[in-house]
Design a protein around this nucleic acid. Structure first.
Lengths: 329, 329
DNA sequence: TCCAGAAACTTGAACGATCCAATCCTGCCG
DNA sequence: CGGCAGGATTGGATCGTTCAAGTTTCTGGA
């Protein structure tokens, strides 16, 4: 077992001082090219890797980003987080950061966890997924000047902090326009109760697209909590009242329920979901697809911008979703 | 902004030395109760938290466990990883460890990532999900005496390293027995090609349960790569050849395909999937459910056992799945 | 009362990196 | 050819903790 390779080992090997090795790593421009090369050679020869703990102790920065992993809420939409996390890990890696997971059962405990993570691990930043109106977590973090980004707009105060989001309204509008283009007129919407920012946004896209095409959206929408059973129930209701020929849904769960409700209806009713979950892909459900990898990448961009002191970087990013067309549309 | 609270601050406040504070934290039994209490009071009063970087530099242990997050392979089964990770984070947390994510596109890069993670972050252990025959990753880790646990048996050498797994054969056997008990005799099996440990195991459970009941399993099974379309194709084939009245599947993806194939068949064919993914719950598909939270917890148990030097702890854990009965069964 | 031995506590050093201030070159100009 | 500016390089101090070794305090038996 070879003994541990430290900066001193490299320095000795390249016949320079520790500081010069450190400079090669952290400020290459102040080292003469020839020396730099010699040090680099020694580094790769010895397989040297800077010890993160030692570096952190001196600089106070851990190069660690925290992300919460949730207890698979609804279930069907769980994979959204999954894919987002994967993108986050990948991009963070490229930027020299690592992703640390944490959980918390409620907001209060979550804030206590922040305190712990910051105190013991000196985390550099947080990524929050899905914030609510007047979220205590963002307030806490902002109070303490802890860098953080949310995936999801703070609907009450758009300039409160950096965020990345996907334009849900644009997604449902695109879905609606597609249905209009294929000849549908009575296009319904299955969504969430008024008051959730995300839900209202998605409904607005459908509403405006219909209006723009000269169709009156009145009476063509239903609201409920998310879930397959709920979607099925509301779709049955729609069928017996307004008899739509197509429906746009705020989630794949609702869309799945809708699909079950229309199973034997002739002529077939078109259905478009939201999130393009694996389930949608598996059963051929058309769905609005969020660019999750891209969203994760932009989160990391914003964070590194803040961490490296580039305050001129834009602090809000709104991404456009795409429509994954499958046979249900 | 109050200045940083270190072990020295606490020591001064409790009128003891740094080392005594350290002992209160790491070896409470060698400190007099009265002193211990005084130090504890100072700690909570000042809100002191041991700096992980400094501790790590001295001890060489990071209290960090690495887990890989995969790029949502098939998709439908992706949420398994999701739930496992959540459990892992929760249990690790309770044991004083944190979970760090990493990705890698192929095995070679993954091993390089190990090297990096170990070198710069001094990770304490790895959790691998799903290993293959002669996996290069486990060999690499074992060579270097890096503690690790796999979720999934090493089918070629059961004693090679600590592992946690779910008894897939028991799961399919249970599913098969349930179908037998409800009067089915021609119970088919949709599985994966011979040669994958997991797939062979799940098929064996079905095979043995049928044989034990005096039913000849010959000709009643089909093999293919995982996927909804494949499941549908093979189920159609089964229907036209052996006309089973029920089918047990090696995954929910296959089961979903089977469901589509039997949509209009009368009398209805019973279907049972595997993994109890959110999709199964959503559409009412009966499925064998893996205790993922429990599995994650046992992984952490095994790791902490190794890390804390308790070599007498069992190094293999085989958990029993349960059958989630829904209307397709 | 005294002393040995154990228990409780204290002190200095070290982990491996970066920061700071001081020193050493090197080339260039007068 | 000496001096000087400027950048390249060096050694020492430091971050917060734990280890190893030393010192003081306590306990109980003669």
């Amino acid at each position: 077992m070879a003994e541990k390779v430290t900066i001193a080992t490299v320095a000795r090997h390249a016949r320079v001082s520790r500081q010069t090795v450190s400079n090669v790593l952290n400020a290459p421009h102040i080292v003469r090219e020839e020396t730099r090369q010699r040090v680099q050679d020694a580094i790769s020869l010895l397989g040297y890797r800077a010890n993160q703990a030692a570096r952190q102790m001196r600089t106070g920065r851990s190069r660690l980003i925290a992300a919460r992993i949730e207890p698979t809420r609804d279930g069907i939409n769980g994979s959204v987080l999954d894919r987002f996390l994967h993108g986050l890990t990948e991009t963070a890696d490229a930027a020299g950061y690592r992703v640390l997971l944490y959980t918390a059962t409620d907001d209060e405990r979550e804030v206590a966890t922040y305190d712990d993570l910051l105190g013991t691990y000196e985390l550099d930043a947080f990524v929050l997924v899905g914030t609510k109106y007047g979220d205590p977590r963002t307030a806490w973090l902002a109070d303490r000047d802890v860098p953080f980004v949310t995936f999801g707009r703070p609907w009450d105060a758009l300039d409160a902090h950096p965020w990345v989001d996907v334009d849900g309204a644009a997604g449902t509008a695109q879905a609606t326009r597609h249905l209009l283009a294929t000849g549908h007129r009575r296009i319904a919407f299955l969504g969430w109760p008024v008051g959730s920012g995300v839900g209202d946004d998605r409904r607005a896209g459908w509403h405006d697209a219909l209006s723009a095409a000269g169709v009156d959206p009145a009476g063509l929408h239903r609201e409920t909590e998310d879930g397959v059973a709920e979607g099925q129930r509301l779709m049955r209701d729609l069928l017996t009242t307004v008899a739509p020929t197509a429906v746009v849904c705020a989630s794949d769960s609702l869309a799945l329920g809708a699909l079950q409700a229309i199973r034997d209806v002739e002529p077939p009713v078109s259905v478009i979901g939201f999130d393009d979950t694996p389930v949608a892909a598996a059963i051929g459900l058309a769905s609005v697809s969020q660019p999750l990898g891209e969203a994760a990448a932009r989160c990391v961009d914003l964070l590194t911008g803040v961490l490296d002191g580039n305050h001129q970087t834009p602090t809000h990013v709104l991404l456009q979703p795409t429509l994954a067309l499958r046979h249900t549309a």
